[in-house]
């Protein structure tokens, strides 16, 4: 039982996909302008992650090793399409706010990364817990970042006007530069006060969406290539 809890909490704090593993940067920067769209993005990605982790774990003994990445991508893309259609039908405002970043969940490194690193090796229950933990960690990081950006940028929180801040909005926070800036400061904050030492300080191969099938993993900088290639 303790083991199961550890699998679940792993993604929320110690291996937070956004602030510690630095995965899925594009949606984090793009959808954190408002708390509501950030939560929508988090929920959509969690739903896709949960479904893909469960199914990949179920099929892990059936999928041949050599074609596993294309299989995972097709599975993930199908779940993304389902989520896209559901949001379009029942939550159009979120569908509209997320825009192009909704289909782009397919290429979100967190989902492919968890499929390859966790779901393909573990049982269904563990994979589902891992997906929930990682999804919650992703949503929480997005929520914190969106709260900061919306509070300072528009002077509101979840659409509610805040005292003082509403009179002095710093519009740049909701624009592109504010996204980079807040994200940089949040990672610096985690580096400084994080209970767990961050595993790495720069952007290396593990953060790359292609790391799972790249021939140059661990060689860094995408330039040094192992001499021998089949």
């Amino acid at each position: 039982m303790g083991n199961k809890i550890k699998v679940f909490t792993n993604g929320i704090i110690r291996e937070n996909p956004v602030l510690v593993l630095i995965l899925g940067t594009c949606p984090v920067l793009a959808t954190s302008t408002q708390v509501s769209s950030a939560v929508g993005m988090g929920a959509a990605a969690t739903a896709v992650l949960l479904c893909s982790n469960i199914f990949i774990s179920l099929l892990r003994k059936v999928i041949p090793d050599k074609v596993r990445i294309p299989c995972y991508i097709v599975l993930i893309a199908s779940f993304v399409t389902i989520v896209q259609m559901l949001l379009n039908a029942y939550a159009y405002s979120i569908y509209d706010a997320l825009g192009i970043f909704l289909p782009l969940i397919v290429v979100n490194c967190i989902i492919l990364g968890r499929a390859e690193m966790f779901a393909s090796k573990n049982t269904v229950v563990d994979s589902a817990l891992d997906a929930l933990g990682m999804g919650l960690g992703f949503t929480m990081a997005l929520f914190v970042m969106a709260s900061i950006r919306e509070a300072f940028g528009s002077g509101t929180w979840m659409g509610m006007p805040l005292p003082v801040l509403a009179d002095n909005p710093v519009a740049i926070m909701t624009m592109a530069p504010g996204g980079f800036f807040v994200f940089g400061c949040l990672i610096a904050f985690v580096n400084k006060f994080g209970k767990y030492k961050p595993r790495k300080k720069s952007f290396e191969c593990e953060s790359c969406p292609s790391a799972t099938f790249c021939t140059m993993v661990g060689f860094g900088d995408c330039q040094e290539r192992p001499k021998e290639e089949a």
């Binding site: 630095i22 940089g184 990672i187 610096a188």
Partner: peptide
């Protein structure tokens, strides 16, 4: 110290943006 690596890179990306 805490800004070394990725954080300072992101802050400079903000200025470029």
């Amino acid at each position: 110290e805490s800004f070394k690596g990725l954080p300072i890179t992101l802050v400079s990306a903000a200025i470029l943006s």
